[in-house]
């Protein structure tokens, strides 16, 4: 194995174009675990952290661009980002321990391709957009469009993510992420939900998006659940409808972390609870 520190994105793309087994390294909290457990090493590991700007959070058009090597801890310490997208930040901050937070990145969480990735439902709900660099140049792609299957994304040959953009927010908007784990920390999500809401002056939901994690081969957007919340103040009936829509959208597996039955039920619970938090953050009083 060789370790290469890339100076810029072009170099990464050029290296990825070569016919070698490459792995990109940002936070390394998935890559190193996999190498260790499988005892399989790529020909080359390409460290992208030294690419200019890739470890920075920058304000852009009222939103924020999160570099691919920005750690969860950095996001948690960024008060304006946290104020704008509290749900996304709390999702990223739930990944692993404080130690893992010191390194883990939101882009890496996406690229790892886990259906249970914490940041992904929050990014979906936030309609986050990934900036992708590749042989054809730079493109912006919605995070949703990159989801593919367990362990893989739709990134093409020699493509990689350099940053993720979280857009500007209107007033009276809020988001939240919640996951269920058997302990209070240190687990992989068994079912999770990201919810983003926009309210009108009367406290009625006018825009909503609901995404679920760990209940299907990839994180999923549940438009039925979002529809159930629009036009309401999150009264009992719409919440019930939201939970039902979530359950209907689930196609989970039985495994060591949870059963189909459990995941299906709890996904709706997480979505409703996240919706209530998002609603409060948007200034609503349920």
């Amino acid at each position: 194995m060789r370790y290469v520190v890339a100076k810029d994105s072009r170099e990464v793309v050029d290296l990825l174009m070569e016919d070698k087994a490459n792995l990109l390294l940002a936070g390394g909290t998935d890559v190193l675990v996999r190498m260790r457990l499988d005892e399989r090493y790529p020909d080359r590991i390409i460290d992208i952290k030294k690419i200019p700007g890739v470890a920075e959070i920058t304000e852009e058009s009222g939103g924020f661009r999160i570099g691919a090597a920005v750690s969860g801890a950095q996001m948690g310490e960024h008060s304006q980002l946290k104020a704008l997208w509290p749900g996304v930040v709390e999702a990223v901050e739930l990944i692993g321990s404080t130690q893992v937070q010191g390194r883990a990145t939101m882009a890496g969480n996406l690229c790892n391709g886990s259906p249970a990735a914490d940041s992904v439902p929050a990014m979906l709900a936030a309609q986050a957009v990934a900036r992708v660099e590749g042989p054809e140049g730079v493109s912006d792609q919605p995070v949703l469009a990159l989801l593919d299957a367990p362990g893989q994304t739709k990134l093409g040959k020699a493509e990689f993510i350099t940053s993720i953009f979280l857009p500007a927010r209107p007033n009276l908007a809020g988001d939240a992420y919640l996951r269920f784990i058997p302990r209070t920390e240190m687990d992989i999500a068994v079912a999770s939900a990201g919810v983003s809401l926009v309210l009108d002056e009367a406290g009625i939901v006018i825009e909503a998006s609901v995404a679920l994690g760990a209940v299907a081969p990839t994180a999923v957007m549940v438009s039925g659940a979002a529809q159930a919340l629009i036009g309401t103040r999150l009264e009992a009936a719409p919440l019930q409808a939201c939970a039902a829509a979530c359950a209907a959208a689930c196609s989970p597996i039985d495994d060591k972390r949870g059963t189909i039955e459990f995941r299906t039920k709890v996904a709706g619970v997480m979505a409703c609870r996240a919706a209530i938090t998002a609603y409060q953050r948007a200034g609503g009083q349920p």
């Binding site: 370790y3 460290d47 130690q99």
Partner: peptide, 24 residues
Amino acid sequence: GDCGACSVTIDGRLVAACLVLGAE
């Protein structure tokens, strides 16, 4: 990265030393 017994700081940031390459 599951137990924290290898905790160190790099430039003041808390990390698990088992999840960092020496070269980094």
